[in-house]
Amino acid sequence: MKHTLIALAAMTFAAAASAQSSNVTLFGVADASIAHISTSGKSVTGLANGGNSSSRLGFRGVEDLGGGLKAGFWLEGSIGVDDGTASGFKFDRRSTISLLGNFGELRLGRDKTPAYQNLENFHAFGDTGMGAINGHNLISGSAVGTSEGSNPKRNSNMVSYLLPKLGGVYGQISHSFGEQAADHSLASSTGLRLGYANGPLDVAAAYGVARGGVANSGVDYKTMNLGASYNFGVVTPMVLVASDRGNNKRVDLYSVGVKVPLGAGELRAAYTWYKDKKSDNADSERLALGYGYKLSKRTELYAAVARMSNDDKAARKLGSSLAPTPNLGKSMTGYEIGMRHNF
């Protein structure tokens, strides 16, 4: 009996110690907006999902392994607040396991590409909602042989190394394995990002290659971008230059934006120019203006209005989940009013 009590006590102590050395967090974003979009003499009005931030549900955790080492995991999936979509729920946004230490972080699994992160960070509206930058897959969202287009947001089968804190320097290098039966190089990608953030200044450059095409006849789609922002306190201007190239196509992007603290919220504005370097009369311009009012640290009411002006051979659309693809040469105007809650 005595030995049994001692064993039970030891097991209880071990369980408590294990619980103290690790933690798991449930987190997410619920975001929906009432949106109206008009193009080609037609209009659509409805409830859109993710006007300010993409709605999501996730779990993440870190375990202290001792000796300066930690193990971590991150599982995050998309949800639809507008219609409750969660059937067949999967961790499509991120599913990674990591080893962290003074050396930095080794991360395995599905994650954002290094180049895509600059598109989000150096634009006043990020890549969600009516004012979204729409800066990935500038050449094609369905490029043959690639994982998810000519410059995907995320890739599966990825191995990444992230630098530790180095006096403001940050960076990441990643490789995603294609795992295609016919040709393992197809749908693979490699990316690199290097930046510097210190006080109000943040600047970063990124480069990536996505392998497409067909077996024994591959096509490399290359992307590169450079972004910067500076917080002056009363205003934060930001600038971004990007280019996607491959398969005898090239599209460049130029964007300037600003964030201004105003009252209990923030005013946002951005201008973006999409320049097709291989086709005449196929450019687009988008202007967006919005405001977010903070009810608390986690809850925000927001409104935005945007217009996409297309040349005769262009058909780019706004970022709202309700936005249809316009006819060639037709412009698109939209506005939204919504609410976002982080938990």
Score class of each variant (00 low, 15 high):
His36Gly: 09
Ser33Ile: 00
Asn327Gly: 05
Phe27Val: 04
Ser255Ile: 06
Leu5Asn: 02
Glu120Met: 14
Lys249His: 13
Leu47Gln: 00
Arg56Asp: 02
Ser174Val: 13
Ser188Ala: 09
Gly334Phe: 10
Gly77Leu: 14
Val209Met: 15
Leu287His: 08
Ser95Cys: 03
Ile173Asn: 06
Asn134Pro: 12
Ser284Ile: 14
Gly319Thr: 01
Asp31Trp: 12
Leu226His: 04
Lys90Ile: 02
Tyr116Leu: 13
Ser55Trp: 00
Thr25His: 12
Arg154Ala: 06
Gly61Ala: 13
Ile6Asp: 07
Lys249Glu: 12
Phe125Trp: 04
Ser87Arg: 03
Asn310Gln: 06
Thr12Asp: 03
Ala182Ile: 05
Leu201Tyr: 06
Glu148Gly: 11
Asp92Gln: 04
Gly28Arg: 04
Thr236Gln: 11
Ser140Gly: 04
Arg250Asp: 15
Gly233Glu: 09
Glu300Asp: 03
Ala205Glu: 08
Leu267Gly: 06
Asn342Arg: 09
Val29Gln: 06
Ser156Met: 07
Ala48Trp: 04
Ser331Phe: 15
Ala264Asn: 10
Arg298Glu: 02
Ser189Lys: 15
Gly195Val: 03
Lys42Phe: 14
Ala115Met: 15
Gly199Leu: 04
Gly67Cys: 06
Asn248Ser: 14
Asn225His: 09
Leu253Thr: 13
Ile173Asp: 07
Ser255Gln: 03
Leu253Asp: 08
Ser296His: 07
Met332His: 15
Ala17Ser: 04
Ala210Tyr: 09
Gly68Ala: 04
Ser188Tyr: 08
Ile133Glu: 15
Gly41Glu: 14
Lys297Ala: 09
Gln20Met: 09
Ile173Gln: 05
Gly265Val: 01
Thr272Asn: 12
Val219His: 10
Leu186Cys: 02
Lys222Pro: 07
Leu163Tyr: 12
Gly265Trp: 02
Ala197Lys: 13
Val235Asp: 00
Ser176Tyr: 08
Leu322Pro: 10
Lys330Gly: 08
Ala197Val: 14
Ala197Gln: 14
Ala181Lys: 03
Ile37Met: 11
Tyr302Glu: 00
Ala187Cys: 02
Arg60Pro: 09
Gly246Leu: 10
Val256Tyr: 08
Leu8Glu: 12
Asn151Arg: 15
Leu192Thr: 12
Leu163Ala: 11
Thr325Gln: 03
His123Ser: 13
Leu240Val: 10
Leu65Cys: 11
Gly334Thr: 08
Arg268Lys: 07
Thr333Cys: 12
Ala210Gln: 11
Leu289Gln: 07
Gly72Ala: 08
Thr299Lys: 01
Ala19Lys: 11
Gly233Leu: 06
Ile6Cys: 09
Val235Gly: 01
Ser217Pro: 10
Asp127His: 08
Asp312Met: 11
Phe27Glu: 09
Thr39Val: 15
Thr190Val: 12
Gly104Thr: 05
Phe73Val: 07
Ile337Pro: 02
Asp82Asn: 04
